[in-house]
C-alpha cells in the first residue's frame, strides 16, 4: 500500500515537472509580451512593472498582422477544403472499385507520403501555368502536397462504411455525385474533419512553401511575416513575443476545439493492427 502511494506521488511529480517544462516557455512569452522594450529584453519570468496592453495594438499595425492573418486563413482554409473533398472522392472510388489500376493508383499516391517537394522545379511548373508568385499557386501546392495523407487516412476509414447503402441509393436512382455527397460524405464526416484539422494546422505552420513561392511580402502568411518582423526588429522582444502569441492563438483554438478529432485521426491507422 505504502509502495503504491510512493509510486503514485513519483508519477505525479514526473508529470508536473514535464508540465512545467512545457508551460514555462509559453508563460515567458506571454508575460514578456506585456512589458516595455528594455524590460522584455531581460526575458525574466517576473510580472511586468507596467502592463502594456498597447504592445498588441502596435504590433498588429507594425507587423501588418491583418494581412498575414488574411493570407494564412485563405491558404489554410481553401487548400484544405479542396484537398480533403478531392481526396475523399478519390479514396471512395479507389477503395470501392478495387480493380488492378486502382490498386496501383492507390500505392502510386501513397508514395507522396515520403517524397520531398522539389520547390526549385515546382516554380518552373508554376511558371508554365502562369501561377508563380500568385496566391492560387501557393494554394494548389498545398493541396497537392496533402493529397497523399488525406487519401491514405480516408481510404482506411471507407472500408468500414457498409456498401449496402451504395446499392440502395443507386436502386433509388441516385447518381454517383448525389450518392457521394448525400450518403457517403455524412458517414465520412469524422475522418474528413480529422484530415481538415490536421492539414489546416500543417498549412498554417508551413514555412518552406511560402519561403520559396512568395517573393512579395503582401503574400506572406503569418509564419513568414513573424519571421520577417523578427529580422527587422531583433531587439524589440516585447513586440516579437506579442506577434508570436497572436500567430499561435488561431492554431491553439483550432486544437482545443478539434482535439478529439485529432487524436482519433492520428491513430486510426495505428489501432487498425
Amino acid at each position: 500500500m505504502m509502495k503504491r502511494r510512493i509510486s503514485a506521488v513519483l508519477k505525479q511529480a514526473v508529470c508536473i515537472l514535464l508540465s512545467i517544462i512545457v508551460i514555462a516557455p509559453f508563460y515567458m512569452v506571454l508575460i514578456n509580451s506585456f512589458k516595455g522594450k528594455s524590460e522584455a529584453a531581460r526575458m525574466s519570468l517576473s510580472l511586468p512593472a507596467e502592463w502594456l496592453f498597447s504592445n498588441y495594438a502596435e504590433v498588429i499595425e507594425k507587423a501588418k498582422l491583418w494581412q498575414g492573418l488574411g493570407n494564412s486563413l485563405l491558404y489554410a482554409l481553401v487548400s484544405t477544403f479542396i484537398g480533403v473533398i478531392l481526396s475523399a472522392m478519390a479514396a471512395f472510388v479507389l477503395s470501392r472499385n478495387k480493380i488492378k489500376l486502382n490498386k496501383f493508383l492507390y500505392f502510386f499516391i501513397l508514395c507522396g507520403l515520403f517524397f520531398p517537394i522539389n520547390y526549385v522545379t515546382l516554380i518552373r511548373v508554376l511558371q508554365f501555368f502562369h501561377l508563380n508568385d500568385t496566391r492560387i499557386g501557393i494554394i494548389i501546392t498545398f493541396t497537392g502536397a496533402m493529397i497523399p495523407f488525406c487519401v491514405f487516412t480516408i481510404y482506411n476509414f471507407i472500408s468500414s462504411v457498409p456498401t449496402e447503402m451504395d446499392e440502395a441509393a443507386v436502386i433509388d436512382g441516385a447518381g454517383p455525385l448525389s450518392l457521394f455527397f448525400r450518403i457517403i460524405v455524412p458517414m465520412l464526416k469524422p475522418t474528413m474533419v480529422t484530415c481538415f484539422i490536421l492539414q489546416f494546422m500543417t498549412v498554417w505552420s508551413d514555412f518552406l512553401t511560402p519561403l520559396y513561392l512568395s517573393s512579395k511580402s503582401k503574400m506572406f502568411p503569418m509564419t513568414m511575416s513573424v519571421y520577417q518582423f523578427f529580422g527587422k526588429n531583433k531587439n524589440s522582444w516585447n513586440y516579437i513575443f506579442a506577434d508570436i502569441i497572436l500567430t499561435c492563438l488561431p492554431v491553439i483554438i483550432v486544437y482545443l476545439l478539434g482535439q478529439r478529432y485529432i487524436i482519433g485521426g492520428l491513430t486510426s491507422g495505428a489501432v487498425k493492427e
Binding site: L86, I109, C111, G112, F115, I117, N118, Y119, V120, T121, L122, R124, V125, L126, I140, T141, T143, G144, A145, I147, P148
Partner: peptide
C-alpha cells in the same frame, strides 16, 4: 493536381 504540382517537380 498530385502529379502536376507534387510529383512532376
Amino acid at each position: 493536381i498530385y502529379v502536376l504540382f507534387f510529383l512532376l517537380p
